[in-house]
Design a binder for these strands. Structure first.
Lengths: 195, 195
DNA sequence: GGCGTAGTACTCTGCCTGTAGTGGTTGAAC
DNA sequence: GTTCAACCACTACAGGCAGAGTACTACGCC
């Protein structure tokens, strides 16, 4: 089992791309080797088996999603009203949508988690932490809405992104934007701008 | 190319089960043969190739999801207020959740649609029709809320179901129930019971 | 009796895994 | 500064395995 961390990370990033592009069906050691432009058999040297690979991909995904200090700090600026939340949600949706391969890979992992207990444990832990972090961050930033608000935004926006990335013609691009605004308006009642 | 419609349907139903259980990775002609308890090579005789198989699975899925007249009629009974909507949404979530293999198979198909234009066209068409039908049905039944309401319920509840089916420990079962109520309460403002 | 299909059996192919072996690089010890 | 050891990249290969597809036989229905 080789140890070179940079190479391991490169292999995992390649695996994310393969997952998104070819699906779970296409995720083989060989495909990872090719995607990472690395000699055949390299992935075999870094991962015990497919299960090991998938679990490490899960870890890697969240490693790459580590909080962006800039974005976090930006939330603390500006007003704390509903229009601000709308802005933040637009940013969020756009940011996640732009990491298309990552998002699709995560969906593949979710489906794989259905049959791999260890992967399921990992994803459950990370996603729950993510939701909790969103809630406390939202509340502590003094933004309007409670924990339930944040969870409902999480639900609706996630499916909206999924729809956008898998079947983009269901909701055309301009409608997506309007829908994000609608989501916040309906889920977060109250005045638009702080009075 | 064999024609027997009953056998074809049985093969497609088997394919749905395989998709849900083994994922897109496990969906091979052989696996379908085994699942349908049919001799090896049969699926080869019924489908040109993998693409053909997947597209027909998409058709079959929606064939099986044809409107349930009983459920449709039930909506027209009882009051037309928010509590009624909450009830209906609870029923909906439970009904869809119970067709676990179908829902998971559809998710697999969505991801496959990312790389198969024909499948994407098919799913786009059927899902858009589904959303539109939900909207007109809701409005014509005189239930409170407009088209946007229905779309937002669609978004939030779909992700809730996905969460429930793929990572059940994120939101424990009792919380799911409460969340459905929350979703309706927040998205559909107004009095609980008709006055 | 003929058409279509179920069922059997077999081959061919291609891909994937895992590993052995070699050469090179780096880092440490002296 | 030289030597040695450890690690790793890379090549090449063997073995395996499952799946696709197809001839062929048998059977039932019209």
């Amino acid at each position: 089992m080789r140890q070179n961390p940079a190479r391991r990370a490169a292999l995992l990033d390649a695996a994310i791309e393969v997952l998104a592009r070819e699906g779970a069906r296409g995720l083989t050691f060989r495909a990872v080797d090719v995607e990472a432009r690395v000699p055949n058999g390299t992935a075999s040297n870094y991962f015990d088996n497919r299960d090991d690979l998938l679990t490490q991909v899960g870890h890697r995904f969240y490693e790459r999603l580590e909080p962006d200090p800039g974005v976090m700090a930006a939330v603390l600026e500006g007003p704390r009203d509903r229009d601000r939340v709308t802005e933040l949600m637009h940013d969020l949706v756009d940011r996640v949508s732009h990491f298309r391969s990552g998002y699709l890979a995560l969906l593949e992992l979710r489906l794989e988690a259905t049959r791999r207990p260890e992967l399921r444990r990992l994803l459950t832990e990370r996603i729950r932490a993510d939701v909790d972090a969103n809630i406390s961050h939202h509340v502590q930033a003094g933004l309007p809405g409670d924990a339930t608000t944040v969870v409902l935004l999480y639900l609706a926006l996630n499916w909206l992104i999924l729809e956008r990335l898998t079947l983009p013609d269901i909701f055309p691009e301009d409608q997506i934007h309007a829908l994000v605004t609608d989501v916040v308006e309906r889920i977060l009642p109250g005045p638009r701008r702080a009075t």
